[in-house]
Amino acid sequence: MTNLDFTTLLPYINLLPAAIAITLQVGLGGFILAIVLAIVVGSLRTRKLNWVVHLVLTAYVEFFRGTPLLVQLFVVYYGLPSFGIRIEPMIAAIVTMGLNSGAYLSEVVRASILSVDRGQYEAAAMLGYNSMQTISQIILPQALRIAVPTFMNGFSSIIKETSLISVLPVIELTKLGNQIYAKTYHPFEIYITMAIIYFVMTYSVTFLAKWLERRLSVWVN
């Protein structure tokens, strides 16, 4: 049993803010992209669609849900350049995380939309709402209220999954941990510190989620 010595990390502490910033940027960027995709794809998939659109959307959702995120990162960052598409590692990370999480969350949006009572559509139609107005002003606000808890879980997941982008040339938290480890050989101190930082981030999201839910639930029956 070795003696724990957290002071060996001190020389590297100035590198932490940048790594945390990258983790948060990828997490938040991926999450925002995921929300937009989830709302658009989820809403579209509740409607009768042209078969090509239907096929494309279904393929997107099923592919991203049916393959590992790590492999998706490899495909986007290392695979696409074979077709002449070269992407900055940060962009590749955000886009892949967003596409991946968007696929999952779109199913949540779809289920939430389908759970809104048919009477809401009928009431809106009788008042003269067209289908765009109905979905954006009547149905989505109700569906998204239902989806908020799952969305916030999705945000926590994305933050945790950003550790996978350590396989790209990006120095986020996990990669920084690996680098410090290579120099100090104090794995426990390093990785437990990283774990605590991840935990603080996801736990804050939990609080944010609770606050959001309380704010949104005034009108829930």
Binding site: G119, A123, A125, M126, L127, G128, Q142, W219
Partner: peptide, 22 residues
């Protein structure tokens, strides 16, 4: 369809169908 009736026909439903988020 409802596009032929809106503005001319109002409907009151058994289970109200109020908009809960408004």
């Amino acid at each position: 369809n409802t596009a032929s009736t809106y503005g001319k026909v109002g409907m009151v439903f058994q289970n109200f169908n109020l908009f809960p988020h408004f």
